[in-house]
Structures are given as structure tokens and as C-alpha cells.
Design a protein around this nucleic acid. Structure first.
Length: 272
DNA sequence: CGGCAGGCGGTTA
DNA sequence: TAACCGCCTGCC
């Protein structure tokens, strides 16, 4: 399989619990993370002129991990389709060509993207790790460190606003407590309107949850970076979020989420 | 010290 | 329904 690269996949802003923790003999990065309540190590190993994803996991069957890494999707076809619709995206689709949109847990996405608002990635990761260590189940030691699952809603429901405030989550503490309670009471949200009804969830966060938690690949989250990009590449006024959404819907359709990830990853490395 | 960051929610007009 | 502003915190 050629359309997979761990740096592209884990550094494009979609997940917060995978980190490069070593290097393979050939110099390629080795990532360690937790997904679905299992700790895992991931690396890419060259094989017959292509690349194999090799996992060392503490649990989860082959089906789970294939689904998690979206291995059943033909990304070459997606990139071809996007470039055909708009050749301005071709450089970005090539640059981040190994991105895979992970199939992640809905509740984890809900809380993680609430934490992400007005925040940067290193700090988001620290906050989420602190939540996992305090409220999540221990998975025992893996690769030299104790690992923790992201807490289930019933586990996180034990958290108080004060505890979360003490963990430096800031004004988001109220949203986490309220959204966890809502999730417990109503079950997982299934569409944009339901996601948007969660406290602390606005349009940007809701689109992230749609894309990463429900794999709704037509979702197109517009954050400040995407505003910069849409202004720079397509001339949109930075305040015209509705225009950007409409453009993405009409131009990229069911592949808008992939387009957003390629553009985001491409521009982020260029530090506009 | 002030300004800002990968937004949201409440208040205005 | 658009525009504005306060907000926790960390970093510059």
C-alpha cells in the first residue's frame, strides 16, 4: 500500500494521542499511541516496492485496526478525483499524500475537540493526556511507560469542574462536564445538528467531530488556518466562512474532508 | 507589560 | 444574522 505515511497521518491535526517515540533501523519514525482502549506501536516498513503498515498492539483484532486506519479506502482514487475537480489542490494532495482519515471514537472526538478550541496542538495533547491519566483505565506498561485509555463517558462523568480547572483546562471545564452529561443521557450524536447542540461545540468543532468521529468525509472544518488558505488560494474574504463551506460542498462534495486535510497539512508546514 | 492562539456563547443592533 | 467581545491559559 502506497497511500499511507505515519507522519502525514498523525501530524495533520486529526488525532492527539500518537507521538513519535523512536526511530526504526532505516530512520523512519516509530509512533506509539492509544486507540480503542489499546496501546499500539506503528511503523511503515518497505515491502516489494510499496509500504506496509506494521503494528505491535496490546489488543484489538485485525478488523479493528484496518478500520481505524481506513485501509479499505482507495486514497489514490480520492486524490485523482480532487485534482480533476481543482488542479490548484494538486501540490497539497501530493505533499500530504500519505494522510489517512482515521476512524476514531465519537466520545473521544467530542471531548478532544472541545479541548482544542483557542488552543495549540502541544497543549491540547498535554490536556488530553492528563484527562486520560486521571479518569481513563490503565492499560499497563507499554514501551517503557504506563499507558491510559481515553475515559469512557461514565468515567469522565466523575470529573468536577474544579478538578478540570486545576488541570489547566480553563473555561472549557464547564463544557466538558456538561457535554459528558449530555452524552451519557442521550447517547452518541448522529448528525451535524445534534453535535452542534453540545455545550462548547460550535460550527468548527462540530465539523471536526463529524469528519473524525463519524467519518463524514463531506465535512469541511473551517478554522483560522483554513481561512488563511481559502483567502490565499481562492481569494475568499477571511470572514466569509459560509462562502468557503459552500465552495467546498460544491467543488469537493463527498471528498471535502480529504481536501481540507491535504490543504491544512500542506500550509501548516509552510508556516504562512 | 500587552497581544495572540487550530472558537464558543451571549449580547447587541 | 452579523458583528463584537470576554474568556482560561501559555507563550512571546
Amino acid at each position: 500500500m502506497n497511500d499511507i505515511d505515519l507522519v502525514h497521518t498523525f501530524e495533520c491535526g486529526q488525532c492527539f494521542r500518537w507521538n513519535e517515540e523512536g526511530t526504526a533501523a532505516d530512520g523512519s519514525p516509530v509512533y506509539v499511541g492509544v486507540a480503542g482502549g489499546y496501546a499500539a506501536e506503528a511503523e511503515i516498513v518497505p515491502h516489494d516496492g510499496t509500504a506496509d503498515l506494521v503494528l505491535n498492539v496490546t489488543g484489538g483484532d485485525e478488523k479493528f485496526w484496518a478500520e481505524y486506519f481506513d485501509l479499505g479506502t482507495d486514497y489514490s482514487e480520492i486524490k485523482r478525483s480532487l485534482i480533476e475537480k481543482d488542479d490548484r489542490i494538486s501540490d497539497a494532495a501530493e505533499y500530504g499524500g500519505g494522510i489517512r482519515i482515521l476512524n476514531q471514537d465519537m466520545f473521544e472526538m467530542l471531548i478532544s475537540f472541545i479541548v482544542s478550541q483557542n488552543n495549540n496542538i502541544p497543549r491540547i495533547k498535554k490536556c488530553i493526556e492528563a484527562i486520560c491519566e486521571r479518569y481513563g483505565t490503565s492499560l499497563g506498561e507499554f514501551r517503557g511507560r504506563e499507558r491510559f485509555a481515553f475515559p469512557e463517558a461514565e468515567e469522565l462523568a466523575k470529573a468536577t469542574e474544579q478538578e478540570l480547572a486545576d488541570m489547566r483546562l480553563g473555561y472549557r471545564n464547564k463544557y466538558i462536564v456538561a457535554s459528558t452529561a449530555k452524552f451519557m443521557a442521550e447517547g452518541a450524536p448522529g448528525n451535524y445538528e445534534e453535535i452542534l447542540s453540545y455545550p462548547g461545540v460550535g460550527p468548527k468543532v462540530a465539523n471536526c467531530i463529524l469528519l473524525f468521529g463519524l467519518h463524514r468525509t463531506d465535512a469541511f472544518p473551517v478554522d483560522v488556518w483554513v481561512k488563511h488558505i481559502m483567502n490565499d488560494m481562492y481569494g475568499f474574504d477571511k470572514s466569509d466562512i459560509r462562502g468557503m463551506q459552500k465552495f467546498a460542498e460544491e467543488k469537493f462534495g463527498e471528498y471535502a474532508g480529504y481536501a481540507q486535510q491535504y490543504l491544512f497539512y500542506y500550509y501548516r508546514d509552510r508556516k504562512m
